[in-house]
Nucleic acid binder design. Structure first.
Lengths: 255, 255
DNA sequence: CTATTTTCATTTGTCCGACAAATGGGCATA
DNA sequence: TATGCCCATTTGTCGGACAAATGAAAATAG
């Protein structure tokens, strides 16, 4: 046997090539979000492969979030949406035995950037959305499930207000994993809901008055509150997320 | 038409249910990385659906990176790997017309966290890896392509040294997009390579002496250098990444 | 008896043809 | 005009089929 002279040759499967071809069209901009990719019969004709093969290719793209079929009908290109990506990242974190400390540490940094950016870039509609969220949160103070969801949404709105989509994308996965625990905390710690709503109030006010120091103080406090609440609820911050998450059905979680 | 009383009913497709069922097994830990999922015929028997349907389900999981088929043979569960995720996120950024300013701003924050964490948690092998990278970089000072790759790797090593996988995952996508531009900068700006290597040197030293202030100064300088170089190379930081990326073949990029 | 070659059963990738259900549009009817 | 019905199109699923690749068992050569 001679030395390794040739690289391993791999023939891509036809369904893979179908997916790649369509993906190239999308990535190059020749197919724009909203455009119709065409019917399966059409793709069969163009690619010259069987419909089963086309369908397998479509499944690949579907899972990538590049195309979507609405209500069993025409296939069209998706606007870039990060949700499916975020859920996939969250799954990777669960599988990777990531601990809540890691999520907490990253969240602190990302949320500080979030609120800092919001102070610089928040427009009126951003602030209005935050206020609306706050109004609902005050109303939902007694409903941990709803409050947790509103909290998640509050921070998503904050990131959006910061006007940095890289940040939005970077923070989403850990946010997805924190959400269910926020509910757990509000259930176990009586003053949890109040402190959460109070912190949000101060954050909104700081953004409105463009007071960055005040914002950072309250964001730090808010995130640390989460940690304290988590521990007060009897959980260990060093434990892998999987241990907390596993009792919840994946369906509610990653969506 | 009355108010929206009912939620939309969605019947999941069979291939989707196949994928979900296998995914649940993986996420719950009943199927572990490396385990064999079984042959298609077996799945056909267990799920009671057609092979085409099973195959479509497998395609979904394949693209999620949860399962893999090696060399046309048995299907087995993948170890959680972030690379395919990062590349997909990068694609989403390209499609979303994310600008280099957004990437730059996020990178600054994330890299500061990275180096801060490295100072707290870097072990000997981490530092050794960084030194090794540095040695190679000094050697490759005249080769922009190789230097850019080493720079990317340097920052990946740094994130790993910080011991936070959430951070690793969060920073990877933007890092993937910065890499090709680093090469471009080193080609256009004569002193670029030297400044890059110098900054890395100071960063390593700061980590070894656990000097956080020094580290943050040099990281900030390093990231700002990138920005200046980018502009010196005649590019506008407000332009969407797609305009810079598009001339490179996607193959080299996302891998 | 060991090393190589030759079957041989499995499994995947692809293809073909088929049908029920859902969808959307046109047409007839009230 | 608004409603219901019919029909072509398209998707989701099914059954069966075959070539190529793979790995292992069996046969052969040394």
């Amino acid at each position: 046997m001679s030395a390794t002279r040739f690289n391993k040759i791999k023939v891509p499967a036809a369904y893979q090539m179908v997916a790649d071809a369509i993906e190239r069209e999308i990535m190059s901009g020749r197919l724009r979000p909203g455009d119709q990719v065409g019917t399966e019969a059409e793709l069969v004709r163009q690619f010259g492969v069987n419909r089963s093969t086309v369908r397998e290719g479509i499944r690949l793209l579907e899972q990538s979030g590049l195309v979507q079929r609405e209500a069993g009908r025409k296939l069209h290109v998706c606007p870039p949406h990060y949700k499916s990506l975020s859920s996939r990242m969250s799954r990777a974190m669960v599988l990777g035995q990531v601990t809540f400390r890691e999520i907490h540490d990253a969240t602190l940094v990302l949320e500080l950037m979030s609120v800092g950016g919001a102070i610089d870039h928040a427009g009126e509609e951003d602030i209005a959305a935050l206020e609306e969220n706050q109004r609902e949160a005050e109303e939902a103070a007694g409903d941990p499930t709803r409050l947790a969801r509103l909290d998640t949404n509050f921070h998503a709105l904050l990131a959006r207000a910061a006007g940095n989509r890289v940040l939005e994308l970077a923070r989403e996965p850990s946010a997805l994993l924190m959400f269910p625990t926020t509910e757990l905390i509000c259930r176990s710690v009586p003053e949890g809901a109040g402190r959460l709503i109070g912190a949000h109030r101060h954050l909104i006010d700081a953004i409105k008055s463009r007071d960055k120091d005040e914002a950072k103080i309250w964001m730090t406090r808010h995130v640390e509150d989460w940690k304290k609440g988590f521990e007060r609820a009897g959980r260990n911050i060093e434990e892998p997320v999987s241990q907390v998450i596993e009792r919840l059905s994946p369906a509610n979680l990653f969506e």
